[in-house]
Write a protein that binds this DNA or RNA. Sequence first.
DNA 1: CTGTTAGCGCGTTCAG
DNA 2: CTGAACGCGCTAACAG
Lengths: 339, 339
Amino acid sequence: MTTIRDVAKLAGVGLGTASRAISGNGVVSTKTLAKVEQAVRTLNFSPSKVARSLSSKTQGLVGIYFPSFEGTYFAPILQAIEKELREQDLHMVTATNFGSGTRRERAVQGMRFLIERQCDGVLVLDTYTHDADLKAFKKQIPHMVVVNRLVPGMVADSFPIDHDLAGRMAAQSLIELGHRRFAVMHSERHSSDVDVRIQAFKSQLQKNKCPKPTEFIIDGLLTFPNAWKTSEQIAQSKQINFTALFCATDVVAMAAMSRMQTAGIDIPGQVSVLGYDNAEMAAYTYPSLSTVHIPSKETAVNACRRLLNQTFGLQLPVIRSFQPAMIWRDSVRSLVSSK
Amino acid sequence: MTTIRDVAKLAGVGLGTASRAISGNGVVSTKTLAKVEQAVRTLNFSPSKVARSLSSKTQGLVGIYFPSFEGTYFAPILQAIEKELREQDLHMVTATNFGSGTRRERAVQGMRFLIERQCDGVLVLDTYTHDADLKAFKKQIPHMVVVNRLVPGMVADSFPIDHDLAGRMAAQSLIELGHRRFAVMHSERHSSDVDVRIQAFKSQLQKNKCPKPTEFIIDGLLTFPNAWKTSEQIAQSKQINFTALFCATDVVAMAAMSRMQTAGIDIPGQVSVLGYDNAEMAAYTYPSLSTVHIPSKETAVNACRRLLNQTFGLQLPVIRSFQPAMIWRDSVRSLVSSK
DNA sequence: CTGTTAGCGCGTTCAG
DNA sequence: CTGAACGCGCTAACAG
């Protein structure tokens, strides 16, 4: 191992000078700077991040908690965050939701793992932990921001997503296309943001005096297999008394489409299907999936920027408000004659 | 910040004793151990990972290089690795392929990022870097293993996947179902493992005296949009002179199916489609996608175990050989009457 | 502008 | 079995 001491010796300067020259903190004359740089190059010196961390009390490390790498939801977000961090020469440590106990307990374990790693800041993408958990963590971590929820007492560090608006938009748009009889597929055991969008959807229906939607409730998480299984109910039903099915996520929508089509149900001929999230893949199903675009990536990236600003004193611009948007593709048909 | 010094003081023991009690290295009498533990608890003490790293020369950090979080390929692998590491109380730092320059250059940048972080070990999932690059890195990193390629001079640390076998299996299986006229869709600019499977597929065709397959070549990476675009060639062709299309990945297969179906082509009635990888989603397209299962996750996990054994002196079992397997679903039809 | 000194918090010698 | 001293590699504060 070659240390900064070696560099100083070779360059014929003091240790402090070498340190200043290399770290860039403090002033050094152009001449000595050149000497040090020369020595660094010949020794192929690279300063120890660990020693630097110990002394400077900062690791350049941000922790990210999220449920899972799998599925279509978190990957794009992680990719964007990774890029954001690399640009600042920072890195991240991840923790996902596994282990033993309830989902909340596992989330808490994940957070603890991050805390033990002594991250400079933590970004939380989670709906399982309770507000109280988060507030408790807040005390143990220098900085923390939360995506996709609004934590009381942490509003400046919260980056919620407006699922209420998105859910209402979904219903309203479908109604404007002439649909009146609906079904929804979701889970009451996935997460609260799912409940919000579904409630919003239903209340918008009610506001328009539509009959109550048929509900297909998935028992557990919104995974492909679970959604597939629940879709059997549609596939096997004698007759379908709705023209549009609103699914809590694109994953659910894809599984439902696949299952219904396997049973010979025509989409969108017999049933229009609307997804939610706008996963990349949704454009490449057959028929291509109409969906509600949720600005998850933008929200997460800006939360990340806020975190970096707080934690490392940066001045990155942060935007807090993004709108959902309807994405029309082929899985939804219009029941009104085009004008 | 509460240090081990505080613990020692509170417990009324020497600093060294406290250290031994807490780290578990060295012997301490049961009595003093209890005293120290008590102090740790009341102070809610947690030793500084950084200081520990500086002194012990090990961070408990493994670096993972892979092209991207996105797509269907790496997420399950990462999830499995994350689990593996958490079980050993280790964590990971990731680097993906972005930045400027060629893909190889960006990969090198990613690897450098990992090296600068002074990981104890690095796991490489990459086909862009050259063997020489990897060998150069090897000298700068304590330990390194490579997945999905066989690097000369690093065979013990290489965990290749047998794409040749998988490609031949794919062809042979399709032939046994009565197919004789084929098409393949792939890219010559994606990565070498893609070339291998396609070559193997074609050579197996030749071995069976099948006519040369029609080739649809994607210009660039094997992404949904690129595959979709290339599939236009099939969608717009007057007549289709093949009964089965072999796609280099499931992503390609999904996009191709979607595009062809949009053009009114019946799958598998007119064209059978075979994917490659066995992504989770492949079971939830319509029709569900037949594919070649590639044991990527198992291979990566075992490479990871090898790395942990080497780096941290563990004794995890590591298996080196996994077989690909055909997964039959609904996108391929048999042309032979069932016996 | 530069060199020297003193920590950062922990592990690991050594005597005792 | 225990306690005091030293060192990991670097940054920061202080004189010069």
